[in-house]
Design a protein around this nucleic acid. Structure first.
Lengths: 138, 138
DNA sequence: TATTGTTATACTCTATAACTATA
DNA sequence: TATAGTTATAGAGTATAACAATA
């Protein structure tokens, strides 16, 4: 087995993706769509640019993704009053309701995945992953 | 920030992917192609099925990927003598040479990424990721 | 009958470039 | 000039189904 960080991240993503597909995809959401909904649920009036930088998505791809979510009636784009170039994102009623449902499902999902990890191991895993993620800004 | 495993794995993959693109992609390899070459360099006579199960790739997609690598003259497919349905994979001379070059580049890449992680932290990170990956078989 | 691999198809993701509107 | 977002395009990844050859 290869001792390379990128490879091991990809390998670890296999079971998490599989469980996502079983538990949350049936609600009609892909992984990124789910993430967008949950982020918007807790971050009001985020702009597309901010969201795109968080997700590491290129502006063009984000526009596509958001058009799809808008088409499904889950989000709205509103011109910002502070900067007429920017668009602020918000969940619709339907988006909020779906985000709540998906978030609830995700809790059971996490518990299933990390069942055999102690509290200390979970904390360590998340901390190390976040440190790797922060290398973006280094 | 979301405390979800899949999300944090995706976030951690952003810098590793970026560094890969800077250091190894210029050799003409995608991440999966790189992984295949390195795996074949150390595992002689692997069959497509074995490789596909390791990578978590569907047989149809693997066939595509391998045809591409074969087209580039990097690998060969040989009918297995023990099971005429299976194909054993091997690097060509050119594939071996490229695998060697890419593996060398990947060492500098890892060192750059994990520069501020102690030996203990690295060991912990890889062990936890491998435990998550092993959930595939659970 | 089950397994190994291929072909075809469709959708999503990702990257780049050219563009509009606003700052 | 720079920034926010859109449109178009092309390559790569992913999932499903139908298929041929072999076990």
């Amino acid at each position: 087995m290869l001792k390379l960080l990128g490879y091991n991240l990809a390998q670890a993503s296999i079971p998490t993706t599989r469980v996502f597909r079983r538990r949350i995809a049936p609600l009609g959401l892909t992984q990124v769509e789910f993430t967008v909904l949950v982020l918007l649920a807790t971050n009001p009036a985020v702009t597309q640019g901010q969201l795109g930088r968080t997700l590491g998505a290129a502006p063009s791809n984000l526009a596509n993704l958001l058009s799809r979510l808008e088409g499904k009636g889950l989000i709205e784009r509103r011109r910002s009053r502070r900067d007429a170039r920017a668009q602020e994102l918000a969940l619709t009623r339907r988006g909020e309701s779906l985000a709540k449902k998906a978030l609830a499902a995700s809790e059971g999902m996490e518990e299933g995945l990390l069942r055999h990890f102690s509290a200390g191991e979970r904390a360590m895993l998340f901390e190390l992953l976040q440190r790797v993620a922060r290398l973006r800004h280094a």
